[in-house]
Design a protein around this nucleic acid. Structure first.
Lengths: 157, 157
DNA sequence: CGCTTGCTTGGAGCGCACTCAAGGGTTTTA
DNA sequence: TAAAACCCTTGAGTGCGCTCCAAGCAAGCG
């Protein structure tokens, strides 16, 4: 029987805020990370990292002599970008498209530019939407606060 | 044979921006809308409206003598709120929870308040995240713009 | 040597939020 | 009266983004 893969929480704690942890990276000549190290650094699961590779969202990752993945600082940079794009709500398929453009070289600059520009637009729209909802929430919260005060004064008065 | 349900685009055009269209509402005594009118007003599909009802996200909707739904202005207000909450990324299950609280009356104020307050927090976090990604996008877009200029001057110089 | 730990693969499964199908009823128009 | 245009219900299907499983290989340790 084999031990099934254990997916421990990133950084061994209740840290759910998965930001770019560039602090504990190795210098650029010695940048070889196992998949579990990348799990710790990015907050993604090993499953997700392998899946990203399968669907073409990652460049070809270096392998050790036994076939294990060895990620580089460059790969971590890419994963940081992917994380950012994911936060924008960009579909994974679009990210794959962007990755393909990057792989196919320098004559895809304009298309990449356009993709990022469009994403930027979407983000601005999204922020505006969220600020709209914030206004509604604040209005409702004000109402509940008032109701709470009314209830309180009902008891005291 | 029966005609299968046709889901025409809201407002009969390419309008994908589904905002609150409070303009074409009827006054509060004559507020009886068929499901297709609500489709036009909200941008949701009839399927989704019925599904919202099934899962308990809607209050009991009035029916005509033949069993067809007749939405009121109040229902439209609720749908507007649901739309806002959906934009925040709140899971449907949480919205259902909120709907249950509203239905179960006045002694759930504090819990509702807490739910909305938490949502507000989440929205603020989300906006901050998006502004972070915006910074990254702008940096990358600057890079691509520079690359474009370099390519152009390569040709002209 | 056996045991544990960590990694590999392909493919199946899951949760969410819809989305659609099948089969039928009612109302309006021709 | 017939066809078209609405609407109804239950239950199954879809697409996305993971998430997990089963089986197995390689390295380190007592």
């Amino acid at each position: 029987m084999t031990v099934t893969e254990t997916e421990t929480t990133a950084e061994g704690g209740a840290d759910s805020c998965a930001g770019p942890r560039q602090g504990n990276r190795r210098p650029d000549g010695a940048d070889k990370y196992t998949i579990s190290e990348v799990v710790a650094l990015t907050g993604l699961t090993a499953h997700t990292l392998r899946w990203y590779e399968r669907i073409g969202l990652m460049p070809h990752i270096d392998r050790s002599h036994t076939g294990q993945r060895r990620y580089s600082n460059r790969d971590l940079d890419w994963l940081d970008l992917v994380g950012k794009l994911r936060l924008t709500g960009m579909p994974v398929a679009d990210m794959v498209r962007y990755a393909e453009l990057v792989r196919s070289g320098d004559d895809t600059y304009t298309e990449r530019f356009e993709l990022l520009r469009q994403t930027r637009e979407d983000v601005l729209t999204r922020i505006a939407e969220l600020q709209g909802t914030l206004a509604v929430l604040d209005r409702k919260l004000g109402f509940y606060a008032d109701a709470g005060r009314a209830l309180a004064s009902e008891r005291t008065g």
